[in-house]
Every structure is written in structure tokens, then in C-alpha cells.
Design a protein around this nucleic acid. Structure first.
Length: 461
RNA sequence: GGCGCGAUGGCAGAGUGGUUAUGCAGCGGCCUGCAAAGCCGUGUACAUCGGUUCGAUUCCGGUUCGCGCCUCCA
């Protein structure tokens, strides 16, 4: 029985879906004006694991992860680059898909782009207006009237009177209340035509929050099971989504809210504004993508995750151990067995609010068992359980021989095999001096040799 | 200022009212021509001060420190 920590109640709750056997899930995805960084990697992997586990548990999952392709920063960046918004966003969407593929993140059922749902957003804004929750401000922006929505602040645990809008930033004076947020932004003269949509309030473009309300409602219905995203979206973005969706649709919006923790650098949040971020592709130049995925999965999704090269190296060494067990004992591609003791523990861990740290620990216990027993059945189970969280599906020998990005040793595998053959000759002639010399030479090039009963195998250091 | 989260062995990171997390690194041993891999063994870890309890790292309260949200951010 799956339990999920629900941000709304700050408790783990038994999960039960609205429609039996089906789960509808929405996750806030990327604003596409730059490459994805490790914080994005964490959301992508975290909710990929959630979707995978729900499917493994037998649910028919409809997973929607949106793409924000219209926004102040996108417009600014496009102008700086001297390109259209569309060409900028297309480019970074393609880059994001490359990153996802590398990380083994499966495609969601729907990946809606905000610009393709403007009519739905307008209709939602109209309904909010009709219900007296939205107003046209003096500057021609349409704003949501936060004080008119009962329960605003419930998700983030904030009370309206405690929130000090403007404490850190000047507030636009056209709003009736500093906390009101924009639903529809009136068009500015200096903005390109491609970001202006006609509307009954005049030409303009949607505010950020409305897209998620409109797209989730369009693709999943007014009331769905799980809504996820990074912790930083809890307030105000998700709070505003609730206000808009429940305000417009008049029913409960979401049953379970999930928020993943931040990636940190030097104990500080990794973020664009702080400038302390590493892009996924930067990291993949030096580390295998599966190592990065393993690094993320190894911690619980709600805990902070500190990034450093040392920690990635640690993760790589750990993942090597798993693959080494699979290299040494043949594993068949079978389905996971949840009756077998490790399978039971693994499932129990995943059912406990997606405790991947515990599930990974089971993988290591199983690897030890595989090494001791040399049991192909257990090795197959290891491969199958790993597969559930998107790990351990590659050929073990080639994983262990692969060098990520810049760590190339400069020797081709045929050159390495040739050196191994020379060494075998030397060993046969009991010329251990020469054999050791070859081994040392390869080690200097980052290649480790392992002599076994069936000959010598190699792997990267 | 308001609200919230956290503090676990050298490092990373789960978890639990009383009994081994797990991984990396280290040390000793087995195996090996020697190694590597693997196996076996090995560390009085639970910020601090009180309280509850037969017993607390685990529950409650205070303190200290760290982090986050209150502004765009995954």
C-alpha cells in the first residue's frame, strides 16, 4: 500500500486514486530559455521514478509535464539573442529532451506548451472574472484577487496577514492587494508581435500561473490525483494554481501535492538567480548519466542533495559495485519478483513515500548476495529491481569500460585487448615482470585489469 | 520580522523507543604468481540541555547552528 507525503497536510497519507486503477499526475516542468541544470534533473528524475513506480504498482498513469514557453525571461533572452521566441524555445526544448534521454527519463503522456493553450487560459480567466475573483487593473493587467479566495495560503502554511508582499521587492501599485497576481499581462509596445494574443481585455499574454491551471484542467480534468514540482514552487506558484483552479472550477483541485528538495552547492540552494548552477550537460561531460541518475535516486526526494565532484565520484564507485556483480554473474531480462525477500523489501521501501534511498540499499544487499551465491536468478532479480528505478539496464562490461566525457584514456578497446594478449603471452612464459609492466602501463592510462578463471577482463579505473 | 525544514560514524545517506541500514573511504584476513574483483572481519554514529519512560538517536520542550520560503526560480 503506497503512502505519499502530502505537502497539503504535511503528513504521509495512504494513497488512493480518484478513479480506481488510474492515476492522473501533473508536474511543473521547465521554463525553456536555457539549458537544464541539476535542479531540473532532480525534478525530472524524481517524478520519473514516481510515474514508474505507480505503473509498476499497476496503475494506468497519465503523466503531464508542462513546458513554459512564454514568459518575461524568454522574451528578454530572445531579444538579446536577436532570435524569435519560437526558435529560442524550440532549441531549448530539444536540448531538454536530449538531457531527459541521457538520464533515462521516460516521456510523459503529455508535454503541453503554454502557447498552445492560450484560449483555455482565457476562458478560465473569464470564469474567474465572472465569479468575482479577477479584476481588470488600471494598467490593463487582469489580476487575481487573493483575498476573495477562501483558503489562500493553505498549501504553503502562510496566512495572508503574515505575508509581507513588497518586503523585498517593490509592488506594482495597480494591484488592489500587493499579493494579487497577474492572470493576463497587457501587451507592451516594445514586445514582439509573436507574444501578443488578442483578448477581451486587449492584446496581451498569459501570466505564469494560469497556464498550469488551464493545461492540467484541459488534459487531466478539474480534479486530479497528484501534482508535483520543486519545493520553490510551493509558494506562490502552486498556491496560486489552487486559487485559480478551484476558483474557476468550483471543486477540489488536487488530492496529493508532492515537492522535491533542492540541489545544493556548498550548502546553498542551486539556482539561476544565485548563478551557482551546473547544467546537466556540463556534468555529463565528466560523469556518466546513469551515475548522475543514481546520485539523485540514492537520496530521498524530499531531502536536500548536495552536489560536488567528490559526491559524484562516490556515486560512481557505488554504482560500479552493482554493475560488477551483474558482470560477474549472468542476469536474464525478467520481471521483478515481489515475493522474493529483496523484492518485498524493495516494494515496501518504494511504497513508503518513494524511499529510493532504502530501495537502493536493498539493491546493494542483493548484490552482496549475488556475489556470494553466484545465483543467476538473484542477478536477474537485481537487474529487474534496478530497472524499476531506471538503473542497471546496460551491458555491465560495457558500462564498466565506458569513460564519461573527458575521461578518455586514449586507448581503443582493440589496443587494450592487444596489450592484454601480450600480457597473456608473458604470463604463460612466466615472465611476471613483463606482465606487471603491461598492467602498470594500462593502469597509468586508466585501465584496470582483472585476471579471472576465464582470462583477463578490463574496466576503467 | 513571519512561516517552515533539518542537525546521524572520515564522507554520503536511510531508519528505529530496547537487537547490523546501505554505499564510499580506511584497517586486518582469505583468494591471487602479484594484483584487481569478490568474500570474511573491523568503527562505544546519532548537535546540545532538560523532560516522559524500565529503557530515547528515535517521543516532548528549550538552546545552538545550518538551510529554505515570504520576489522569478525545479
Amino acid at each position: 500500500m503506497l503512502s505519499i507525503f502530502n505537502t497539503l497536510t504535511r503528513e504521509k497519507e495512504k494513497f488512493s486514486s480518484i478513479e480506481p486503477g488510474k492515476v492522473r499526475m501533473y508536474v511543473c516542468g521547465m521554463t525553456v530559455y536555457d539549458y537544464c541544470h541539476l535542479g531540473h534533473a532532480r525534478v525530472l528524475v524524481t517524478f520519473d521514478v514516481v510515474a514508474r513506480w505507480l505503473r509498476t504498482s499497476g496503475f494506468d498513469v497519465t503523466y503531464v509535464r508542462n513546458i513554459t514557453d512564454i514568459d518575461d525571461k524568454i522574451i528578454r533572452r530572445a531579444q538579446e539573442n536577436g532570435e524569435t521566441v519560437r526558435s529560442l524555445t524550440d532549441r531549448f526544448i530539444a536540448a531538454m529532451h536530449e538531457d531527459c534521454a541521457a538520464l533515462g527519463v521516460q516521456s510523459p503522456e503529455h508535454e503541453p506548451r503554454a502557447t498552445e493553450f492560450v484560449p483555455q487560459m482565457q476562458s478560465m480567466i473569464s470564469r474567474l472574472e465572472a465569479r468575482g475573483l479577477a479584476y481588470l487593473a488600471a494598467n490593463r493587467d487582469v489580476c487575481f484577487s487573493v483575498r476573495k479566495f477562501d483558503g489562500y495560503g493553505r498549501l504553503s502554511g502562510k496566512s495572508l496577514d503574515d505575508l509581507r508582499a513588497g518586503e523585498r521587492v517593490d509592488v506594482a501599485s495597480d494591484k488592489q492587494d500587493p499579493l494579487d497576481f497577474v492572470l493576463w499581462k497587457h501587451a507592451r509596445e516594445d514586445e514582439p508581435e509573436e507574444v501578443k494574443w488578442p483578448s477581451s481585455w486587449g492584446a496581451g499574454r498569459p501570466g505564469w500561473h494560469i497556464e498550469c491551471s488551464a493545461m492540467s484542467s484541459e488534459l487531466l480534468g478539474a480534479h486530479f490525483d497528484i501534482h508535483g514540482g520543486g519545493q520553490d514552487l510551493q509558494f506562490p506558484h502552486h498556491e496560486n494554481e489552487i486559487a485559480q483552479s478551484e476558483g474557476a472550477n468550483g471543486c477540489t483541485f488536487v488530492n496529493y501535492w508532492m515537492h522535491n528538495g533542492f540541489v545544493r552547492v556548498d550548502n546553498e540552494k542551486m539556482s539561476k538567480s544565485l548563478g551557482n548552477f551546473f547544467t546537466i550537460r556540463d556534468v555529463l561531460k565528466r560523469f556518466d548519466a546513469e551515475v548522475l541518475r543514481f546520485f539523485i535516486i540514492r537520496a530521498h526526494y524530499r531531502s536536500p542533495l548536495n552536489y560536488s565532484d567528490t559526491h559524484l565520484e562516490d556515486a560512481r564507485n557505488a554504482l560500479d559495485r552493482l554493475y560488477t556483480a551483474l558482470r560477474n554473474v549472468p542476469a536474464a531480462a525478467v520481471a521483478a519478483d515481489f515475493e522474493e525477500p529483496h523484492g518485498r523489501r524493495f516494494a515496501a521501501a518504494m511504497d513508503d513515500d518513494f524511499n529510493t534511498a532504502e530501495a537502493v540499499a536493498v539493491l546493494f544487499d542483493l548484490a552482496g548476495e549475488v556475489n556470494r551465491t553466484r545465483s543467476p536468478a538473484l542477478a536477474s532479480q537485481l537487474r529487474a529491481l534496478g530497472g524499476i528505478v531506471g538503473l542497471l539496464q546496460r551491458d555491465p562490461a560495457s558500462y564498466l569500460q565506458s569513460a564519461a566525457g573527458g575521461d578518455e584514456c586514449g586507448l581503443s578497446s582493440s589496443e587494450i585487448e592487444a596489450r592484454i594478449a601480450c600480457r597473456a603471452q608473458a604470463k604463460k612464459a612466466r615472465d611476471f615482470g613483463e606482465a606487471d609492466r603491461i598492467r602498470a602501463e594500462l593502469l597509468a592510462a586508466g585501465i584496470v585489469l582483472e585476471d579471472g578463471a576465464q582470462g583477463t577482463v578490463w574496466r576503467r579505473a
